[in-house]
Design a protein around this nucleic acid. Structure first.
Lengths: 213, 213
DNA sequence: TGTTTAGGTGAACAATTGATCATTGTCAAG
DNA sequence: CTTGACAATGATCAATTGTTCACCTAAACA
């Protein structure tokens, strides 16, 4: 495959992307409009060039009938070949029992799959997701109904943790200033309480928030 | 989703199959020919029925612009064995040029894989993710650095949309009160400006927010 | 200097294609 | 017996869309 000029590459990219977003191919005037050409013939020239370089194929005279020659790419249902590691995360409605129980199906209300690079997860840990109830973390911009992805590990000062308090799992800020015993704190100025850190209290550290709009 | 008649199912299957083989959608006359109809209007009737039953979507007046609503999505071979459907979403750093640019490696900064049930995504749409810059949506609890998952579709009143304003893609609230022309509004009391909705302005509707902690 | 290649304007044309009108017939449900 | 959904004909119209012709500028090249 020959080298493309900058403009040709832009056109090709737009065509691919248009199809990706809309599910069908652009018309020549769609492309013209995108690039602000005053004439459809500007597009035609580029398309002819792309055809000559065997980057695309078209059915002459027919509307929106492109084919893209991707020398490497599979036709379409591309599972990401770049093989980013994916973490499979169960969404727990309630983990009051002390730890997320994978056995009981009732506890799991869904699954999240999150790319590692995007969110910085480690696949070795058994992350899980929690649905937030209540307003105790609004000052950390975490709201009722959000899903929080928890990674079980020891907490450091400043982490947001899932903590078991009075048989209920809640989100709290973990605070530990030099030498002193750690405590937990709600991130809501109307919930000024502090909680001591007891055994098996901290379930894990919050790594991400997911909110459906 | 309602039941389809035999004929409607045949039409739908043909459309799907045609796209699968050719890479683009059939014209109405392609369908007509396939079924040996003497009139294009026979096809039109079936398409209207399929649209009313929400099995397909079309862009009125535009050629070969189908969209198929697959509640079960037979298209992709499932990756996760426990069969929750997963949407593979490219994360775009910047789509200021008007569309996400796949060529520049800087354009795509990662991938998200999100379970459909968890977030209410439809697999038929081509979602993508955007990283939020700025504070224009803080009153909607969307903050600088958050990732917003965008689903390309028409907006309704109250939706949060990704909109192209002055060559930059920004998040805005879409407002349309009965009959009046729609406008866009930043969700920040310090950004009181309103924006008119111009052509090609709205890129899609925000479906979810993801924030790494 | 002439020639090619890339990139573009502007106008006009013609094929493709979707939309619509009027009309016919079948069949099951109320 | 009428109503409504389903299926289809036949003709026509109008919008979308691809194509082409003539012509222009600039850079690269031998």
């Amino acid at each position: 495959m020959k080298d493309l000029t900058t403009r040709q590459q832009e056109i090709l990219t737009f065509i691919e992307h248009y199809e990706w977003r809309n599910g069908f191919w652009p018309s020549i005037r769609d492309i013209q409009e995108q690039f602000g050409f005053a004439s459809t013939n500007a597009v035609m020239g580029h398309l002819r060039a792309l055809e000559k370089k065997e980057m695309i194929e078209r059915i002459p005279g027919q509307a929106r009938t492109f084919r893209i020659n991707r020398p490497d790419a599979p036709e379409k249902p591309e599972i990401p070949e770049d093989a980013t590691e994916v973490v499979d995360i169960p969404v727990m409605g309630d983990i009051a029992a002390g730890y997320p129980d994978r056995v009981e199906p009732a506890g799991e209300i869904g699954r999240l799959q999150v790319d590692i690079q995007s969110a910085g997860f480690s696949s070795r840990r058994r992350s899980f997701a929690l649905q937030v109830r209540g307003e105790s973390m609004v000052d950390a911009e975490i709201y009722d109904g959000d899903m929080v992805i928890i990674e079980p590990r020891d907490a450091y000062d400043g982490d947001i943790v899932a903590a078991l308090i009075d048989g209920e799992t809640t989100l709290k800020r973990y605070i530990q200033k030099g030498g002193e015993p750690p405590y937990l704190k709600a991130e809501n100025k109307f919930y000024p309480e502090l909680y001591p850190v007891t055994e098996l209290c901290v379930q894990g550290v919050a790594k991400a928030v997911v909110r459906s709009l």
